[in-house]
Design a protein around this nucleic acid. Structure first.
Lengths: 137, 137
DNA sequence: CAACAGATGTTAGAAAAAGTAACATCAAAT
DNA sequence: ATTTGATGTTACTTTTTCTAACATCTGTTG
């Protein structure tokens, strides 16, 4: 399993997310209603959040605290996503043209996943994203 | 917050632990009853497990699968703990006699925690401990 | 072999946590 | 002065988790 997948595993009930983010249940549900997050659900319809989503909520909170409204946040998150995809693409090409001489398909896929993940971990300067990366091991 | 603390944060409800470990609720509660784990509780008395405890449960499961009974597991976990403490102690002394010239008390405590944590992350060869370290980031 | 102890399954009933939905509030924008 | 965006609050329902008791199964021991 890639690190990306690990960070996308639905693990946390809303109560824990509330304590980790200092958001209210109402806020979290409202942000979901407005498509800022998409928590998974248990069979019984309870929300389950991943690391990625908690990270995202921390970003959202930070922006809220700075007075950005939901529309603004939506834009920022979208832009960020694009940027990361670009960046990952660039790095993969870089990788491709430098030290990739004799790797098997399997190794290549592994590397790709790693790159994608690394990309995700960088570029978290201005926002509060990555808070959780520091939080957990 | 030290990594140790991060790994000791009560985060997971029993349902998630069940899915991560493939143990039954009955087993998990029974192991708690027999002091193999000490999950935290919510205000409302629901169990909350940390990374450390999930790791520990994976070790326990591995030993159970190998036919070790609870008494045996208890011994192994105790031994392991001792060994880690020894090791951490040794490493701290090492640290102490090499590059520790002018650290404040606070810095020392910080370092101590770090050492303890590093020790915890190593030496996970024979057992299945550390499974979670690979699982999450 | 019979009895026992260890480990786990199962069930019942109670309590906590989480869900939705509707209505309330309040500040900012129009 | 309204309207709208964001959040609080409350009521009621469903899911999840708890404890406790009893059932079952297996390996050990007298």
């Amino acid at each position: 399993m890639s690190d990306n997948n690990r960070r996308s595993m639905p693990l946390f009930p809303i109560s824990i997310v509330i304590s980790l983010t200092d958001l209210t249940a109402r806020q979290i549900r409202y942000y979901e209603e407005n498509d800022l997050i998409q928590p998974a659900r248990t069979k019984g319809n309870r929300r389950l959040f991943s690391f990625h989503e908690v990270d995202r909520l921390l970003e959202i909170k930070d922006l809220i605290d700075k007075g950005v409204n939901l529309a603004g946040i939506k834009q920022m998150l979208a832009m960020k996503q694009e940027h990361l995809e670009e960046k990952a693409q660039a790095e993969i090409q870089q990788e491709d043209t430098t030290y990739n001489e004799d790797l098997s398909d399997k190794e290549l896929r592994q590397l790709l996943k790693q790159e994608l993940f690394d990309a995700g971990r960088l570029n978290k300067s201005s926002l509060r994203q990555g808070e959780l990366s520091r939080f957990f091991h």
